[in-house]
Each structure stands twice: as structure tokens, then as C-alpha cells.
Design a protein around this nucleic acid. Structure first.
Lengths: 212, 212
DNA sequence: GTCTATACCTGGATAGAC
DNA sequence: GTCTATCCAGGTATAGAC
């Protein structure tokens, strides 16, 4: 099996397999050898499609970001657009939570991330937000979404009541958090998103609403 | 130099050196060999003080979290407490941004993290927030702070105007972001924190203010 | 309590055959 | 375009001398 008639690998197959591997076992599980094995191939073959491992990771990150829906800024009020975009953004990251640290720290060179920033910024400015504020809003939404995808709050807790009751008076029910992990995270995200938009609305009225 | 009269290492020295190394060169730079070298010692010596590498990382994470000031919940109005705690929390993480991915994903077994959660939850409940909401608020604040420390929004951009102007119509000034990275991040955090608290205030009036 | 020595594994990447 | 073979660096951790 030196050179198969039909290529065994494509960039897309590699990206998909890498994403699946990271989702299942974490960022550290992604090695070129391991990824190749998943694809029924040997390590070095990957280098026919990507120059190095970082290029693979960047491609995965870009694919995930490209799933975020930013179309709302063209069709909706900025408040609704922010809310709908925020949900779509979180959804995209939560389903690939293990890659969030890489994705959030990565450089602003990935096309999908730039397209997203462009749409958000453009939409906010068009709605009347001053450019500096629009930048801040794009950034703070990113903080909130990335943070919520990164660290499930509840995942941290352990299902052992004894561990908390003794030393942390207010956390006596904390072990229950482990049971309701997902609903706690979703509730916290929903509450935060509502609060953020309501708070920004006040700023908007003060800053933009007072103009002619 | 087999057995020195005075121990060369202490847990505290190891923790400090590990934090400094991570701050300077990132999480991946922390290996037992490298850390030992920084301490003027050989790799295996560390195992006299910690069972394994994860224990070292947990100790670093705990040390950082313990620097967060949660005393405000005992002395201030919940709004002010939230704001002051948020700033202190962000400050602690931003100065050790490289460890945020580990810290945010880690388990809820670290004493400092539990003490913090306990103080926040207790303070909010005492202020009249229903327990479920108090949990959500603690979580959403964590999302926002961790997200803001994790990924500097502006750091991602590159100081090359050409890169953006061509394809992203609204980002023509994006290269300027790289110059003002810190002020963008601080401005975005401040705006988001204000908006969050203002938004929560509305919820508070609706949920708590209407009670007897 | 730190050392040396070492076992053992995994990693990313390249060269050259087919 | 995938293979084999190989390099080299680095990782965690243990055993036993001093």
C-alpha cells in the first residue's frame, strides 16, 4: 500500500477526526500518531495535508467557529441579535468544550473568527453604538461565552456531601450541584445573558438614545 | 551533595517557582525536570514534596485562588460586593493568565475555590437572593471573569492592517486593537461588569423586592 | 532529602522507498 | 499520498546509594 489510487485522507476527514478525538478525550489526547491511527493511517501521512500539528488545531478551531450563526445582526434588533448570537456561540463551544482553551487563546488570524468579529462589530455600529463600545461589547460577550463553555461551574463539585458540609457552611447542598450540572450551567448562562443585555440597554439609552 | 543539612526545597518554594514558570512560559513549559532545574535541583527531588505533577498544579491553582478577596460579602451591599469581588477575582487570574484553563476546569476540591464559592453563595443568600439564583450568579460571574482572563480579546489581532482591510469591511481598524490590547480588555470587562450588575439589579427588584 | 541511574513511554517531525 | 525507518527531545516516575 504505497500510493493508493484514491487518497485515503482529506483535510476534512482529518479535521473531523481531530475534533472527535478532542471532544472525546481532551486536547492532550490529540497527537499526530493517535490521530493517524483513528484514521487508519500512519502518523507521517498527515504531513501531506498539514504542515504541522498547529495547522490541524487551527483548522479544527476555525471549523467550530464557522458554525456560529451571526446572521441575526443583519435581520434583528441589536438586543435580539446579541441574545441569539450568544446562544449560538455558546452552543458551538459547549459541544466542543475541550478545545475552548486553544480556541480562546488563539490568534486573530482564523477566517471564521474574523468574520464573526466583523459581523458583530458592524451590526452594533450600524445600530448606533459608538465604535469603541461596539468593540467592548464584542469582547465581553466573548468572555462570557468562552468562560461558560470552558468551565462548567457545577462539574467541579463532587457527589460527596461530607466533603462540603464540614467546612463550608453555606455549601451544605453543594453535592446536589453535581447532579444538576447541565441545568445549573444553562440557568446561569441564561440569567447572565439576560442581565448583560438588560444592563447594556441602560447604557444604550444613556449613550445613544440621547442623540438627535 | 547527597543529603543536605537543610532542606533545599519546600512546598512553598516549589509552588512559587511553578507559578513563575507557568506565567513566563505557559502551562506546557511546566515539566518536573524543568521546574527542578529552576530550583537548582534534579527532577526526582520534587517527589519528596508532592506525589505527582498534578498535585503541584493544584497547589498553584489553590494559591492563586486564595488571593481573591471575598471579604466584601460580609461588609458591603451585594451589588458592591459583586463588583469588588469581580475585580479582585479578575486581577488574580489575569496575573496568572496561563494557568486559567487548568484552574477553570479543575475539580471543586481545592479549598480556596470552595471557600470562595461558600462566601459568595452565603453573601447572596443573606442579601435575599433565592438559593437557586445565588448559585447561578456565582457561576455566571465565574464565567465572565474566567473568560476575560483566558482570552484577551485584543491579543488575537495582528498589527498588520492589510490582513483585515481586504476581507473584513468593518474591521479596517482592527490592527489598532493590538496596540491597545490592555485597555480594550479592561474597558470590556468594566462595561460587562457594570451591565451584569445593573441587569441583576432589575431581576432583584422583580424577584426579591416584591416580597414583604 | 537529594542524588544518580534508569526504565519506559510518548511526542513531533524528516528522509527516502514505492 | 502513504509507507517504513529513524531521530531526537522530552515526559513521569521508581530504585537505591549516600
Amino acid at each position: 500500500m504505497a500510493r493508493p489510487r484514491q487518497a485515503l485522507l482529506t483535510r476534512q476527514r482529518i479535521i473531523d477526526a481531530a475534533a472527535a478525538l478532542i471532544d472525546a478525550e481532551g486536547l492532550d489526547a490529540l497527537s499526530t500518531r493517535r490521530l493517524a491511527t483513528e484514521l487508519g493511517v500512519r502518523g507521517p501521512s498527515l504531513y501531506n495535508h498539514f504542515a504541522n500539528k498547529d495547522e490541524i488545531l487551527d483548522a479544527v478551531a476555525d471549523a467550530i467557529t464557522s458554525k456560529v450563526d451571526v446572521s441575526f445582526f443583519a435581520t434583528h434588533d441589536w438586543r435580539d441579535a446579541l441574545r441569539l448570537w450568544g446562544r449560538s456561540y455558546r452552543q458551538a463551544l459547549v459541544t466542543h468544550a475541550n478545545i475552548v482553551p486553544y480556541l480562546a487563546q488563539g490568534p486573530g488570524r482564523r477566517p471564521a473568527a474574523l468574520a464573526m468579529a466583523d459581523a458583530v462589530y458592524g451590526g452594533l455600529v450600524k445600530a448606533g453604538w459608538p465604535p469603541a463600545r461596539a468593540t467592548h461589547i464584542g469582547a465581553l460577550m466573548r468572555y462570557f461565552v468562552a468562560g461558560s463553555a470552558l468551565g462548567s461551574f457545577a462539574r467541579g463539585f463532587v457527589e460527596d456531601p461530607q466533603l462540603y458540609a464540614a467546612h463550608y457552611p453555606h455549601l451544605s447542598q453543594a453535592h446536589r450541584l453535581a447532579e444538576h450540572q447541565q441545568s445549573v450551567d444553562e440557568g446561569a448562562f441564561a440569567l447572565g445573558l439576560d442581565a448583560l443585555i438588560a444592563g447594556l440597554e441602560q447604557t444604550y439609552e444613556r449613550v445613544v438614545g440621547s442623540l438627535p
